[in-house]
């Protein structure tokens, strides 16, 4: 039986890509917010996460992160800049929320993170990997490696 991949994004591009290029070996499901993703993960069976980083099309109320607190802490109270920041970094904040809820599935981003930032994300959230672009071969290899790591650790996905 194929492993289940949960795609978390604000549009449908990632899922469309995944169904075309990964659909032969993975069952692709979609979520469009942290709440949707958490609900789907709570039902069990998902082995892998593919997460979009930028959620610029998502409504502000659906974003993870306290707008006023972020504005106060990082942007001198400027909520427009804080909103842009929350949108631009939403994928990592969703991952934080999912980890906090106890979901440990390996997560993959399609983004050219600098090595140090990827190392920081791993320090924060465990099994996180990234490929720089929509290269199906690279994405497939990264997801296979993540599945192998999860199997080696004997940690069944929640």
């Amino acid at each position: 039986m194929s492993a289940r991949l949960l795609v978390i994004e604000d549009g449908s591009e990632y899922a469309e890509f995944a169904r075309v290029f990964l659909g032969e070996e993975l069952v692709v499901e979609e979520a469009h917010s942290a709440a949707e993703a958490a609900a789907r993960l709570a039902a069990g069976d998902v082995a892998l996460l593919l997460i979009d980083l930028r959620f610029e099309r998502a409504p502000a109320e659906a974003l993870v992160g306290d707008l006023a607190a972020t504005a106060a802490r990082l942007f001198d109270g400027d909520e427009a800049r804080a909103l842009r920041y929350l949108q631009d970094q939403q994928g990592t904040l969703i991952l934080e929320a999912l980890r906090r809820a106890g979901h440990r599935q390996p997560a993959l981003f399609v983004h050219d993170f600098p090595p140090r930032r990827l190392a920081n994300l791993r320090a924060l959230y465990g099994d996180v990997s990234a490929v720089p672009s929509f290269d199906a071969a690279a994405i497939r290899a990264a997801l296979r490696a993540a599945l192998a790591r999860a199997a080696a650790q004997g940690a069944p996905p929640r």
């Binding site: 990082l74 904040l93 140090r116 930032r117 920081n120 924060l124």
Partner: peptide, 9 residues
């Protein structure tokens, strides 16, 4: 310091 986004301030 480290941010939840993996960025550093």
């Amino acid at each position: 310091t480290l941010e939840p986004t993996g960025e550093e301030v």
